[in-house]
Amino acid sequence: MRVETLTGAALSEALDDIARLRMAVFRDWPYLYEGTMENEHRYLQAYQVSERAIALAVYDGDWLVGASTGAPLSEHAEDFGEAFEGTPFDVEKIFYCGESVLLPRYRGQGIGHQFFEAREDYARGLGFEKICFSSVVRPPDHPLKPSDYRALDPFWKKRGYDRLPGVVAQFTWKDVDQVSETAKPLQMWMRDL
């Protein structure tokens, strides 16, 4: 396996593969995302137009098995920046960690730590003061929640991230068991750099 850091043209060239990986991984709990390439292109455009965006790509041979993205919060989807309205935080000083997607058989090998460390180092190098990400909020009794699901909260807390009370983005997508798109709450987590 190898991990590559992608920016600029290399990142743009990888976006279709990242889109396919996102759709595969996010079909599972807790996202339950029924994605389309059209939706993916619309969402991932932020990484194509931002000159300060980054992706970490994990390859097994030539096969993309994991990816993690990031961009300045002010250059990402407006839904995320809007979550910070009315807070004391300056979105111009915050770097946003987008998705971290990894096929199941590659989990538990330290790649998640590499994803966070690389994006944190990158954001620090660009002069950002804070770094954040979001996680979808689902009801604890959701019928599609697997009985063996383990939340990632302890992993994120160990890395120094805390939930930001009341700082919740709304993002719309179609769930695998639904007929239409609905808005989902995405809880923001943040730490200092």
Rank of each mutant, 00 (worst) to 15 (best):
Val136Thr: 06
Glu34Cys: 02
Ile131Gln: 13
Ser50Tyr: 03
Leu15Gln: 03
His41Met: 06
Phe89Pro: 09
Ser135Leu: 12
Arg52Trp: 00
His76Arg: 03
Lys130Asn: 11
His142Ile: 04
Val65Met: 09
Ala57Arg: 03
Thr87Cys: 02
Tyr106Asn: 09
Tyr122Trp: 11
Leu56Thr: 01
Gly61Thr: 02
Asn39Cys: 07
Pro72Leu: 08
Tyr59Ser: 01
Gly127Leu: 07
Ala46Glu: 15
Ala83His: 07
Asp60Gly: 01
Ala55Ile: 00
His142Arg: 03
Trp29His: 03
Phe95Pro: 00
Leu64Ser: 02
Asp28His: 09
Leu103Met: 13
Gly110Ser: 03
Pro104Cys: 01
Asp16Ile: 09
Glu51Met: 01
Gly110Val: 02
Gln45Asp: 14
Ile94Asp: 13
Gly70Phe: 04
Ser68Ala: 15
Asp121Asn: 15
Ala19Cys: 12
Arg20Ile: 02
Glu85Ser: 09
Trp29Gly: 08
Ala14Phe: 03
Met37Gln: 15
Asn39Ala: 08
Glu92Leu: 06
Glu129Trp: 11
His113Phe: 00
Val25Tyr: 05
Cys97Trp: 01
Phe84Thr: 07
Val25Asn: 06
Ile94Gly: 14
Asp16Phe: 07
Gly35Cys: 04
Gly81Glu: 04
Ile18Asn: 05
Ser68Leu: 08
Ala53Lys: 04
Arg27Glu: 05
Asp17Phe: 04
Glu85Tyr: 11
Phe80Asn: 07
Ser50Leu: 10
Glu117Gly: 01
Ser135Pro: 00
Cys97Gln: 14
Arg27Ala: 10
